[in-house]
Each structure stands twice: as structure tokens, then as C-alpha cells.
Amino acid sequence: MSSYPLFIATYDRGERWDDGTEKPFHWAFFLKTGNTAGEGLAFQLRGMPGAFYYSGEERVNINKSGSKKEELEIGAVPQNKYARFKQLLAAAPITKDESSKWNCQDWSLKVLDWLREEGFVEEQYQNNAIQYWLREVK
């Protein structure tokens, strides 16, 4: 394989403890690097509003998560540009203001802009289209 298929995966985060409303879906980038379905590397924010952090690649099987909702293939990362891909994700700013309502979706949308500029995300997958396809329909 000369390139890794690139996906965005969404996960259900349950309900808010204070008012019972649904939390926004968690978004993560996923590179399919293995031969087994769902096997690869995840890239995502961890933590909570005001305390988000990015720790880099995580070896996962996204099909083993009971909270996974959707996955959308949006492009590919050539193996020889994998280091650049990781560099872009690590450089994305993280908002630390808990009251801002900023979350992993905001981080992902910023990263998508950079990945698209570098040719990792196909042009037809503009942010508004991705948001529409991954919307939280009840």
C-alpha cells in the first residue's frame, strides 16, 4: 500500500449530566494502516472543554468501539508524507477557554483546511459538506 486511506469517524458521547441534552459527537481522524477492517491509527483530541490536549497517533480498531456512529473516507495520506500529516495535526491550535463552546469538531475543521491545502483531503470534501454528512440527526 503506497498510501493510507483517510477517514473522519464520529462517536456518540451520550447526554449532559445537568440537562439531559445530547452532547455533540466526538470527531477523530483515522488512517487505515492494517489489513483487518477498522485497524489503523486514530488522531484526536482528548480531555474536555478547557482542558483538551492532543497526544498524537493511537493504534486502534475503530470497529471495536460501541459508540462509533459514522465514518467518512475523505482522502489519503501517502506513506512518504506521513510525517508531514502528523506535523499538521500536532501544530493545530487548541482553545483552552472552557466557556467558548470550542470542541474537537472545531479542531478537526481547522485541521481539515490544512490537510486539504496539502492534498491529503479531496477537494469535493469541503468543510460544509463534511459537517452535513456527519450531522447529528436524531
Rank of each mutant, 00 (worst) to 15 (best):
T95A: 12
E123R: 10
G119L: 02
I94C: 12
S108M: 08
W102I: 08
W114K: 11
Y125H: 10
V111C: 12
W102F: 10
V121I: 07
V111M: 08
Q105K: 04
F120C: 01
Q105P: 00
V121M: 03
S100Q: 10
C104A: 10
E122T: 13
I130G: 01
S108H: 07
S108L: 12
G119Q: 05
Q105W: 00
V121H: 02
L115R: 05
I130M: 05
E122Y: 12
N127K: 11
N127P: 03
D106Q: 06
A129E: 15
W102S: 07
K110N: 09
D106Y: 12
P93F: 07
R116G: 02
F120K: 07
G119H: 07
E122M: 09
N103T: 06
S108K: 00
E118W: 01
D113R: 08
D113Q: 10
W107E: 01
D106F: 10
W114Y: 09
K101H: 15
D97M: 09
K110Q: 14
S100T: 14
W114T: 08
P93G: 07
S108N: 02
S100F: 11
Q126C: 09
E122G: 06
E122V: 12
C104H: 05
E98M: 12
Q105L: 01
Q105C: 01
E98G: 07
E118R: 05
T95E: 15
N127G: 04
W102A: 04
A129Q: 14
S99E: 10
F120W: 07
Q105M: 02
K101C: 13
L112A: 09
P93N: 09
L112D: 01
N103H: 06
L112F: 02
D106H: 15
E118G: 00
N128S: 13
E118D: 12
A129P: 00
D106G: 06
E122W: 11
E122L: 13
P93E: 13
Y125Q: 01
W107V: 08
L112V: 06
Y125I: 00
Y125P: 02
N103F: 04
E118Q: 12
E123Y: 09
S108D: 02
L112I: 13
E118P: 00
S99M: 06
T95L: 13
V121K: 04
K96P: 04
E122D: 14
L112C: 13
S108T: 15
A129V: 15
Y125M: 04
G119M: 04
T95Y: 14
L109K: 01
K110I: 12
C104P: 09
W107Q: 03
E98K: 15
N128Y: 13
V111N: 06
S108A: 15
N103D: 13
I130Q: 00
W114L: 11
I94F: 08
S99I: 06
V121Q: 01
I130P: 03
E122P: 08
Q105H: 05
K110F: 11
W102M: 08
A129H: 10
D113K: 07
E123D: 10
T95F: 09
Q124L: 13
D97T: 15
T95S: 13
S100C: 12
